[in-house]
């Protein structure tokens, strides 16, 4: 086992525009698997673009941002990572 620092940039493997949201989330939103150059494929919500099928495609470059994911029962923000498309 060896620790490896992961890039904050990756490429979209696949994404889904979700039209029925779980509790604490608001539809429509985009969830995706992002391939990092070091190998891992990670799950993430996507921000910074319209939640539509045309907004992204496989291979699109994305970068990590720290953002609000949802709220806890008391209304406190829960913070985590998301990815957003890199403007070209």
């Amino acid at each position: 086992m060896q620790e490896t620092a992961l890039s904050s940039r990756g490429k979209i493997d696949t994404f889904a525009v979700v039209h029925v949201a779980p509790m604490g989330f608001k539809a429509p939103y985009i969830q995706a698997f992002v391939d990092l150059p070091e190998g891992p494929r990670i799950f993430s919500l996507i921000t910074g673009c319209e939640p539509s099928e045309d907004a992204l495609k496989t291979g699109a470059e994305v970068e990590l941002v720290i953002d609000k994911i949802t709220e806890d029962e008391k209304g406190n923000d829960l913070i985590g990572y998301k990815f957003r498309p890199i403007e070209k």
Binding site: D13, T14, F15, A16, V18, V20, A21, P22, F25, Y29, Q31, A32, F33, F43, S44, L45, I69, T70, L78, G80
Partner: peptide, 12 residues
């Protein structure tokens, strides 16, 4: 916790 919705996962 990160917002994965399982139908969306299957959609992917």
């Amino acid at each position: 916790k990160m917002g994965m919705q399982f139908v969306g996962e299957a959609a992917m």
